[in-house]
Design a protein around this nucleic acid. Structure first.
Lengths: 353, 353
DNA sequence: GTATGCAATGTAAGCCATTACATTCATCGG
DNA sequence: CCGATGAATGTAATGGCTTACATTGCATAC
């Protein structure tokens, strides 16, 4: 049986160890590491050699305590279980990386109390700034952030009514545009699958977008069949089944996101329903999944990467005391794939792209 | 235009502030928070009231420095871009939560140098223990961990040849079983899509599993067509296209994971190839995606949640100085869906479940 | 040659919580 | 009624780093 090499245990080397080895003061070592320009080239070399030899890595806690900043940002997203926030967050992280900033991520499970707790935890950990999703959170959370003057930014939303700095898109208008397209194809019996709207402004706005589209065409929003469930593929499937059991049966189901829509497609297949032959399905977000499922989803495309990148830039500016500029509104587009078509029984020559 | 409420800015309250307000010493406050049983009920109440009133949260850095532990574990996974590690990590995190431990996650992009850097960063941040994926990493990384006596655990692998503690499954045997099933159906021209094997023992083992299955049936492994690319849907599609251009064209493509397989299915559809009519495709991991794509993937099911949960238990034990037990080998199974069938031209009455 | 300024480096005061050790005080046995 | 005991609390050292301020030494200007 193989044996582990014996490695001598060593306490973590400290600044002092490095200083002793390089025969300088701890201040010089610190400067070499943080503001190299303040140190002569010869000294710098000697210090770096010592750092190298000792495998020195600064103790984070000590550094944070002394410097009062950590070069760490935090992000709290509702969930990591699906890819909805993955791409945006990836871009956010990359951009932070270019600025020498580390990202700490936490998830709140769409629960305001948990989000507040996570905010507290990240602040205690010394996060210099926070990226949050949407505007819906507890009063206490806002108070904490404002009291401590922690810069923060709400992403994934653009709500003209809010004073808080944000970067995102108009969820309501985006969904309204999609719903209008659906109605334009002749659909009159719509179903909607939405996430719980209580603490989720994005879900609320998207849902209102559907209602707005209907009202704009003089349709009674009471005709809209609704299922409200937590985001998940399985729930999307379940909600779809329920909608198909309603009377009148919807000819188009608008899903609050692509994950729901993927579940709906699965359920449709199981029920022997053809999409888009018997019923149309739309998504929202245009995550990778949307292009993979069969039929590929017609959905709202969101510029996730740009949102993440620019969010990072704004927060960095904010932290530096610079002007981050006003809230940013990004444009969404509708990505037309194959899951949306006119309702059954519509003349074939009708255009529907 | 709405205006922000004016919130009085306050520096973060410290232990001393709390102590002053509760008219006790800082030691008593600390004890109230960490070992409440050592404090009288009356004092405890007074202290907690002060904590509440001030919105006090202990400064993480200071605590880490004084206590020499952080109740924080770290995990470094190769990627967050797809769901491969999501479920296992979720379970890991949940189990840690039950033990009052916070999880910090970093990703290495399958790059050993970056992983080493991340390890260093997490250690500097005071991680009490680390969860790592696989056994392939730099000598320096191992040395660092051993020197500092940071408990760590390799997950997603079970390699009998390694001394290092691990929890996972036998990637080689699992893939061999699947490949054997494919060969058993009559396929003789196999294609493989693998992740870069250089620094990835899981990818290597899975690939060797295919070769082993072929050898066990007396087949020449030279007949195996290989494409090696980084994990991604698009790369899976590209690799599949290339394999289909080879002669002889494979009748079954074994993918290193479900993400590749999803890409392969997409490419097949674009090329007008029927799966599994013209060509079979298999995955690995059985992530949610596997059941969603059309056709649904035949793949290797991995007990991700159990792996995550037990990994947490082992690391917690290790940290407590208790015996974590030996390395754990988990069993995988083959999940049969519809993407695998005998090669075209095979008699129809043949069983292939 | 002296005054001046500046670059390079050193000294030491914090930052905030934990905890070993010291102190206080009430209770109990004898 | 005294000393011993132990629960409750306080005192102060400690940890590793940054940075304001102090010092040094050299080049430049006059």
């Amino acid at each position: 049986m193989p044996r582990l090499r014996d490695v001598p245990t060593t306490a973590a080397p400290t600044l002092e160890d490095v200083a002793a080895r390089a025969r300088v003061s701890t201040a010089t070592v610190s400067r070499t590491l943080n503001t190299p320009s303040m140190v002569s080239a010869a000294t710098r070399e000697r210090v770096m050699a010592a750092v190298e030899a000792l495998g020195y890595a600064p103790n984070f806690g000590a550094r944070a305590m002394a410097a009062k900043r950590t070069n760490t940002f935090g992000a709290i997203i509702p969930t990591m279980e699906n890819a909805i926030f993955a791409r945006g967050l990836q871009a956010f992280q990359e951009e932070l990386g270019h600025n020498g900033i580390t990202l700490l991520v936490a998830s709140s499970s769409y629960d305001p109390a948990l989000e507040e707790e996570q905010i507290r935890a990240l602040v205690a950990r010394g996060a210099d700034a926070l990226l949050l999703i949407g505007h819906d959170r507890t009063e206490a959370a806002y108070e904490l952030l404002d009291r401590r003057r922690i810069p923060y930014l709400a992403a994934w939303v653009h709500d003209p009514a809010s004073v808080r700095l944000s970067i995102g898109f108009d969820n309501r208008a985006a969904m309204q545009a999609l719903a209008d397209k659906v109605l334009g194809l002749g659909h009159r019996h719509l179903g909607a699958i939405t996430a719980p709207r209580a603490h989720n402004d994005r879900a609320r706005a998207r849902f209102e977008g559907i209602e707005a589209a209907m009202r704009a065409r003089g349709l009674d929003t009471a005709r809209l069949q609704v299922e409200e469930m937590a985001y998940s593929i399985e729930n999307g499937a379940e909600a779809f089944r329920r909608l198909m059991a309603r009377a009148p049966r919807p000819t188009a189901v608008l899903c609050g996101n692509d994950v729901f829509a993927a579940g709906a497609l699965m359920a449709a297949r199981e029920m022997g329903l053809s999409v888009p032959g018997d019923v149309s399905v739309t998504g929202f977000d245009d995550i990778e999944l949307a292009g993979i499922v069969t039929p590929a989803l017609t959905t709202v495309h969101v510029p996730h990467r740009e949102m993440g990148r620019r969010a990072a830039q704004m927060l960095v500016a904010l932290c530096a005391g610079a002007d981050p500029g006003p809230s940013v509104k990004l444009e969404t587009t509708i990505t037309c794939r194959t899951s949306l078509r006119p309702p059954p029984g519509t003349a074939c020559h009708q255009t529907f792209t």
